[in-house]
Amino acid sequence: MTEEWVGDPTHIAPLNRYAAALRARHGDVPRFDSLDGGIDARVLVLLETPGPASASTETTSRDNPTGTARNLTRFLDELPLSRRDTVIWNAVPWGLPRREGKLGRPTRKDIEMAAQDLPALLALLPRLQVVALAGRVAQSFRTALAAAKPELRLIAIPHPSPTHLAASPAARENLFGGRLRREIAVALADDAS
């Protein structure tokens, strides 16, 4: 991956410096999407691990050419906030080796190392109010997030991958039904008052 991209907008530059520091230690870590809110975000969507599209685009983005990104975009577009209110990242932000043709799963060591890096990320997001934990790996970071920033509202959401949603109609209904959107909207409204 390219180490230094010229011209990072000021709202995303601190996050991409954070990503570059992780890249120096762990290898394949994508950048944050400059179209998202960056350091001004109020909602962090924490996915599990970078998918193959992140390697080709070098960015964790709802605009990546995948079904997961399309489903995430659909979910986020129905929230009562703008794209500049959100930022997307991965619980384990470095690429994992493929195993038997499938995406690698994070090990306990990957999860422990990534949890240690979370406070530095949260320190870069002063307006953050809500973390949407997408999938089991992201949801395993609940304790680390609460310890680092206790005032955050942590909301579990199904992982938006097409495979997961196809295997679980309940997860699909949960993601695209109105309950999660209302829960996030209420959390943002409560914090604003």
Results as ranks from 00 to 15, higher is better:
Met1Ser: 06
Met1Pro: 02
Thr2Phe: 00
Glu3Arg: 14
Glu4Val: 12
Trp5Ala: 06
Trp5Asp: 05
Val6Arg: 03
Gly7His: 09
Pro9Ala: 05
Thr10Ser: 02
Thr10Cys: 00
Ile12Leu: 09
Ile12Ser: 09
Pro14Gln: 10
Ala19Thr: 06
Ala19Gln: 04
Ala19Val: 02
Arg23Trp: 00
His26Ala: 11
His26Asn: 13
Gly27Ser: 06
Pro30Gln: 04
Pro30Leu: 01
Phe32Asn: 14
Phe32Ile: 12
Asp33Phe: 06
Leu35Glu: 15
Leu35Phe: 11
Gly37Arg: 02
Ile39Tyr: 07
Ile39Pro: 08
Asp40Arg: 14
Asp40Val: 11
Asp40Pro: 04
Ala41Phe: 06
Ala41Leu: 07
Arg42Ser: 10
Leu44Pro: 02
Leu46Arg: 06
Leu47Arg: 08
Glu48Phe: 01
Gly51Tyr: 12
Ser54Pro: 13
Ser54Trp: 02
Ser54Arg: 15
Ala55Glu: 10
Ser56Glu: 15
Thr57Arg: 14
Thr60Val: 10
Thr60Phe: 01
Ser61Leu: 03
Ser61His: 06
Arg62Phe: 03
Asp63Gly: 08
Asn64Ser: 10
Pro65Lys: 10
Thr68Asp: 05
Ala69Phe: 03
Leu72Ala: 11
Leu72His: 11
Asp77His: 11
Pro80Gly: 09
Ser82Trp: 04
Arg84Gly: 12
Arg84Lys: 12
Asp85Val: 04
Asp85Leu: 00
Thr86His: 07
Val87His: 02
Ile88Phe: 00
Asn90Glu: 13
Asn90Ala: 07
Val92Ser: 04
Pro93Lys: 00
Trp94Gln: 07
Gly95Phe: 01
Pro97Glu: 15
Arg99Tyr: 08
Arg99Ser: 13
Gly101Phe: 00
Lys102Trp: 05
Lys102Asn: 10
Gly104Phe: 01
Pro106Leu: 07
Thr107Ile: 03
Lys109Tyr: 11
Asp110Thr: 08
Gln116Met: 08
Asp117Ala: 15
Ala123Arg: 03
Ala123His: 01
Leu128His: 11
Leu128Pro: 03
Gln129Gly: 01
Arg136Leu: 10
Arg136Tyr: 09
Val137Arg: 15
Ala138Thr: 13
Ser140Glu: 13
Phe141Trp: 03
Phe141Gln: 08
Arg142Asp: 14
Arg142Met: 07
Thr143Leu: 09
Thr143Tyr: 09
Leu145Ile: 09
Ala146Asn: 05
Ala147Asp: 15
Ala147Asn: 14
Ala148Glu: 10
Lys149Glu: 08
Pro150Trp: 04
Arg153Asp: 12
Arg153Phe: 04
Leu154Thr: 14
Ala156Pro: 12
Ala156Ile: 06
His159Ile: 08
Pro162Glu: 15
Pro162Asn: 14
Thr163Lys: 02
Thr163Arg: 04
His164Pro: 01
His164Arg: 12
Ala166Ser: 04
Glu173Asn: 08
Asn174Trp: 05
Leu175His: 12
Phe176Arg: 09
Gly177Ala: 11
Gly177Trp: 07
Arg179Ile: 03
Arg179Gly: 06
Leu180Ile: 05
Leu180Lys: 11
Arg181Asn: 03
Arg182Lys: 06
Ala185Asn: 15
Ala187Val: 07
Ala189Gly: 02
Asp190Arg: 14
